[in-house]
Every structure is written in C-alpha cells, then in structure tokens.
C-alpha cells in the first residue's frame, strides 16, 4: 500500500511535465529535434502511465475510448486535407505556398498543420492500442 502511494503521488507529479514536454517537442520541432511523431508518442505515454497507475477507468475519464478512436482518422484527414487545400487553391497536392499570402509563411503554416495531423493520429493510435490490449487482459 505504501509503495502504491509513492506510485500514485509520483504519477500525479510527473504527468503535467510529460504533457508539457510533448507540447514542447511538438511546437519546438521546427527548431530542435522532435515533431509530431515523437510528441504523439510522448503524449500517449502520459495517458498510458495514468491508466497503469490509476486504472483504465481513470484514463477513460480523461481520454474516452470513443474520442480516441475518432481521433485516429481525424489526424490523417487533417494531413490529407492540408494537401486538398493546396489543390483547391490551384496548386499541386501538398503544396503549402498558397496557404498564406507569403509563400514562406504558407510553408510554415502547412508544416504546422501536417505535424498536428501526425500528432493526433500517432497519439490516439498508441493510446487506442494500449486500451485494446488492456481491455482484453481484464
């Protein structure tokens, strides 16, 4: 029981930092190492840590299974949709230069959107996989 207490308090202490680090890796990916994929895995690991320590119900309250499963295609749609936006504005698929008035800003916005799509798909896929395994174990 005392060990359990240490785990619970430790998890609560470290969770915000894991999530903050995921956001840092996501948004600092333009300047340092990292990007949507790594940030997605780190964000998913926060949810997994929560469900290991506090049980699956606690994790489901924060990230419900139905929401997580809907986010998997959402990320791919954001990515593919960014490409379609380029098509609709008269350029090639996934050409970001038309997304803003300035070509360079368009590219920055395009990379941001695409990385957001990757983040959403990776984070939700990893979480959903863990949920699927954990549910079968019960």
């Amino acid at each position: 029981m005392s060990l359990d207490l240490i785990l619970r308090v430790g998890t609560k202490l470290i969770l915000p930092f894991i999530l903050l680090f995921a956001l840092y890796v996501q948004f600092h990916g333009d300047y340092g190492p990292g990007g949507g994929f790594q940030a997605g895995v780190i964000a998913a690991s926060a949810i997994i840590l929560l469900s290991i320590t506090f049980g699956l119900e606690a994790a489901h309250r924060i990230a419900p299974q139905s929401l997580v499963e809907r986010m998997i295609p959402l990320g791919v749609l954001i990515y593919a949709g960014t490409g379609v936006a380029g098509l609709l504005m008269g350029k090639n698929y996934l050409d970001y230069s038309v997304l803003a008035h300035d070509a360079v800003h368009g590219h920055e916005l395009g990379i941001f959107l695409v990385e957001a799509g990757v983040l959403i798909t990776v984070a939700s896929t990893m979480t959903a996989l863990f949920y699927a395994f954990a549910e079968r174990g019960r």
Partner: peptide, 28 residues
C-alpha cells in the same frame, strides 16, 4: 523555402510531405 531551421522537420513535413502522409496512413 520554408522558414524552418530544422532540416529534418522541413524535409519530413515539406519537401518529402508525400512520404510522411504515407507513414501516417500506415500508422492509421
């Protein structure tokens, strides 16, 4: 071209965007 100093990010998400779309679809 992209205003992004990290070449890895600009290659993955911009120059080679098709590949990353494929990778995301694979994960999906």
């Amino acid at each position: 071209d992209t205003g992004v100093p990290n070449v890895v990010t600009s290659v993955l998400a911009d120059y080679r965007s098709y590949d990353t779309l494929g990778e995301t679809t694979v994960i999906f």
